[in-house]
Simulated assay, not measured.
Amino acid sequence: MMQVRIGIKQEYLAAVAHSLAKILADEFVLYTKTRKAHWCVTGPDFHSKHLFFEDQYKQLEEIVDEVAERIRALGHFPPATLKEYLALTHLTEQSREKNNSAGHIRELLADHESILVHLRENINDYVTAFHDAGSSDYITGLMETHEKMAWMLRAHLE
């Protein structure tokens, strides 16, 4: 594989790529759980929540692709199997809530908030420890997207 020469040491590129791989795993698990909510939601608000979850999983589908492409831009290959995602994620596949809209929303909201905490923990390290302002900027934007998605979920519970 051709070496990436973008002004960041190779070991730093590897460290950021590994960190982004964990984010990718989280995003893929959340995407899958949001798809499940879209498919499995029940109740009198089925139609509106079915469409709402569809909008959310489409946003997450784009995020998954963008994170994987960011890893490739740094000269590394992203994880791309379910086994790898499950080994890297800090989320759980297990559903603890009811299959109604409120149950799905509570669970998805908790995952978005967990991802937000993880993203915030990495923003400064990308710049200070690894000299990668681009990846720091990228996950700042990603954080803002998750904040908005979490707000949309939270609004359904208030």
Rank of each mutant, 00 (worst) to 15 (best):
G43L: 09
T89R: 04
R35W: 10
S95A: 12
I63F: 09
H131S: 13
E158G: 07
V64F: 04
F130W: 15
L108A: 10
N99Y: 11
R106D: 08
H131R: 12
H38E: 06
K9G: 00
E66G: 00
W151L: 04
T145C: 08
V64T: 13
Q59E: 15
Y126W: 07
A68N: 12
V67I: 15
T81M: 03
V127Y: 08
H146V: 05
T81G: 09
P44E: 08
D137Y: 04
R70M: 10
E11N: 12
G141L: 13
T128C: 03
V117D: 13
D26I: 06
Y12I: 00
E107T: 12
A17Y: 04
E27M: 02
H18N: 13
L116F: 01
M152S: 04
D132V: 03
I8P: 12
E113R: 11
D132C: 02
L20E: 01
T32F: 07
K33F: 03
E54L: 06
I63K: 07
L20M: 10
T34D: 12
G103N: 10
H156P: 00
L91F: 10
G75L: 09
R70P: 01
T32N: 08
T42Q: 14
M1F: 08
L86V: 06
K58F: 00
A68G: 14
R70Y: 04
K83M: 05
I139T: 07
D45E: 14
W151N: 06
H90M: 09
Y85D: 04
R154A: 13
I139C: 04
Y31F: 15
F130V: 01
H146F: 15
H18I: 02
H18S: 13
V29R: 00
A102D: 14
L109T: 10
T81F: 02
Y57P: 03
L142E: 06
E54V: 00
L82G: 05
N124K: 02
E54T: 06
D26V: 04
A15H: 05
R96G: 05
G75M: 06
E61D: 14
H18G: 01
T145I: 08
A17G: 08
K33W: 05
N122I: 01
R106V: 04
I115S: 10
L51P: 00
K83I: 04
A133I: 10
L142H: 11
D111P: 09
A25D: 03
E66H: 04
E61C: 02
A37S: 11
I23K: 08
V67C: 07
I71L: 11
R96L: 05
A21T: 08
L86T: 04
I8T: 10
K36Q: 13
E144G: 03
E107C: 07
V64Y: 04
I23D: 10
I139D: 01
M152V: 00
L157T: 05
E158C: 03
H104P: 07
A150T: 08
I8S: 11
A17T: 10
L142F: 07
D26M: 09
L51M: 14
R72I: 14
D45C: 00
I139F: 02
K33T: 05
Q94T: 14
M1S: 12
I63H: 06
T140W: 01
L88V: 00
T89K: 01
I6F: 05
K22Q: 14
